[in-house]
Simulated assay, not measured.
Amino acid sequence: MEYQQYGDTFYVRMDKGDEIITNLLNLCQEQHIASCTYSGIGGCSSAEIQTFIPQTGTFETRLIEGMLELASFTGNIITDQSGELRNHSHGVFAYKVGERHEVAAGHLNAVVVLYTAEITLKPVVGGTIYQQYDEETETGFWKLHE
């Protein structure tokens, strides 16, 4: 991973074998970024995608592998109650199965780069977005006021 800051935006390039979410969390720790948003595109080799199932209160996880065009990647990193950084990422991937073009999308747990990923990361300026726990989903949502 390589990155450069211009103004208040970080421009991040990830290379073959890099895991995107882990690297973004590491960048935020290095740069003391408590909350941010990001978006990007790229070519990936694997993605672990989740979908929340409200009826059961659980997430279904699917691993896709191969030449995956990361057509859209967006998300945020916020700070939880204990001061740890937490990510919330979604992605859309296009890929081929035989002669068919397919698309898979959802919440992302892990994404590994095949060729490159180009991501812009914008830190929150003038404050911090924290996480508040949601019992129904057992996850955290934005807490905008202290």
Rank of each mutant, 00 (worst) to 15 (best):
M1H: 10
Q5I: 02
Q5A: 05
Q5R: 15
K16T: 14
D18W: 03
I21H: 14
T22A: 13
N23Y: 10
N26H: 09
C28E: 08
C28L: 10
C28W: 12
Q31M: 08
S35I: 02
Y38A: 06
G40C: 06
I41L: 10
S46P: 03
Q50R: 14
T51G: 07
T51D: 15
I53S: 01
I53N: 11
P54A: 04
P54Q: 08
T58M: 11
E60G: 00
T61Y: 09
T61K: 10
L63N: 11
L68N: 01
E69L: 13
L70C: 15
L70W: 08
S72I: 00
T79S: 12
D80C: 03
Q81H: 07
Q81C: 09
L85V: 06
L85S: 10
L85M: 09
R86G: 05
H88G: 14
V92Y: 01
F93G: 01
F93V: 02
Y95H: 01
G98R: 00
H101C: 00
V103E: 12
N109C: 11
L114E: 09
T116R: 09
A117M: 05
I119A: 01
T120V: 05
P123F: 07
G127C: 08
G127A: 04
T128F: 08
I129H: 13
I129P: 09
Y130Q: 15
Y130K: 15
Y130C: 08
Q132C: 06
E136N: 04
E138N: 15
G140Y: 13
E146I: 02
